[in-house]
Structures are given as structure tokens and as C-alpha cells.
Computed example of a mutant assay.
Amino acid sequence: MAQAQKYKETPEEKKARLEKIENAKIAFITEKLSLTPEQAQRFWPIYNEYNTKRYELKRKLRSLREENLNNQSNEQVKASLETRLSYRQRELDLDNEYMDRYLRVISPKQLALLYRSEREFTKLLLERLQTSSRR
């Protein structure tokens, strides 16, 4: 039986796809939060900065999870666990810092809507990916 080759996305195609998703996310959140033009101008740089920092922390945390436990002593594993907790605390500290910064630009209700909208967008995206993979 012949197997279908998987389509390999070029770097340019991947970049275009990610930009399309990011633009859709921006439009989705802007609409859900009912951002005024003035709010949007101040909000998006803060949001992008926060996401960059959050991504970096998550990347470091992910690399810790991928360590091979079989080749480590109990002390090394314990140190790794403590490092993970440290990164998770840094994530919480980042959330607190940026909550304060967001609240200088948007209302508490809009901030709550931001968190909800991010989850909704992710859910929508996953649903669309599932639907397209069934075709």
C-alpha cells in the first residue's frame, strides 16, 4: 500500500500561517474587549511584551520537563523540581506585574474578558484544526 506523504510546510508558509492566526487573535480580542482606539494603542504593546516574556518562561519550563530522569541522581531531580517551581513562581509574578500594567489601560471587567477571550480563541482554533484534519 502506498502511503501518502505528509505535506511539509516551508518556513515562509509557517510564518504566514502564524501571522494569520495572530491577526485573527488580535481582531477577536479587540472585539471581545470593545477596546477603544486609544486603549488598543496602549494595550497591544503591553500584551505583546507580556506574551514574549511568558513564552520564554514556558519554553524554559518545557526544556526542564524533557530532561532524562534516568540519568540523574535524586539530588539532581530534586534540584530540577525546585527549578520548575521557581519558574512557575516567576510566571505568577509576571501575571501579577502585568495585571497591574493592564489595569492602567483597561478596566477590571475588560481584563477578565481578556482572560476569557484568550481561552475562547484557543478553543476555537483547536476546533477548527480538528475539523480541518478530518477532511
Rank of each mutant, 00 (worst) to 15 (best):
R104V: 00
K32T: 02
R59T: 09
N71F: 03
R116G: 03
K78E: 11
K58L: 15
R90V: 09
S86V: 04
Y50W: 10
E97V: 01
E31T: 15
R116Y: 13
R101A: 03
R90H: 07
Y115P: 00
L64P: 02
N70F: 01
Y55F: 15
N68C: 06
K78D: 10
K109A: 09
Y55T: 13
V105L: 04
E75K: 02
Q110G: 09
N48F: 15
E120I: 05
Q76K: 13
R101I: 02
I29E: 08
L111M: 10
T122M: 06
Y115N: 04
Q72K: 14
N74D: 15
L113Q: 10
L94F: 04
L85I: 04
S107R: 07
E120G: 08
L94A: 12
P108Y: 06
P45E: 03
I26N: 05
E31Q: 15
L35P: 14
P37K: 09
D93Y: 07
W44L: 01
R88K: 13
I46P: 07
R65G: 12
Y87P: 10
L114M: 07
L33Y: 08
I46A: 12
S73R: 01
T52S: 13
R88G: 08
R59W: 05
L35T: 11
L81N: 01
A79V: 00
A112N: 12
R65S: 09
E56M: 12
V77L: 14
L124I: 10
A40K: 05
K123Y: 06
R42D: 06
S73P: 08
N74A: 15
L35D: 14
A79Q: 07
R88D: 12
R62I: 08
P45H: 02
R116D: 10
L35A: 13
S80I: 10
R119L: 11
L114F: 04
F121M: 08
W44G: 11
R90G: 05
S63M: 11
N51Q: 11
K78C: 00
R59F: 04
Y98V: 02
N51G: 10
Q72E: 15
R88N: 09
Q41D: 02
A27S: 14
L57E: 07
R116F: 12
W44K: 02
Y115L: 06
L69W: 08
R62P: 00
N70W: 02
Q110T: 05
L124Y: 13
R119K: 13
S107G: 04
Q72I: 01
K78Q: 11
L92K: 00
L64F: 01
L61Y: 05
R84L: 04
L94V: 08
E56S: 14
L85S: 07
S86K: 11
R88A: 12
L57V: 03
K60G: 01
V105E: 01
N68T: 10
K123Q: 14
Y98H: 02
R101Q: 13
R65A: 09
L57P: 03
R104Q: 11
N74E: 15
Q76F: 12
T30E: 11
S73D: 08
P45R: 05
E75G: 05
L124P: 00
N48T: 14
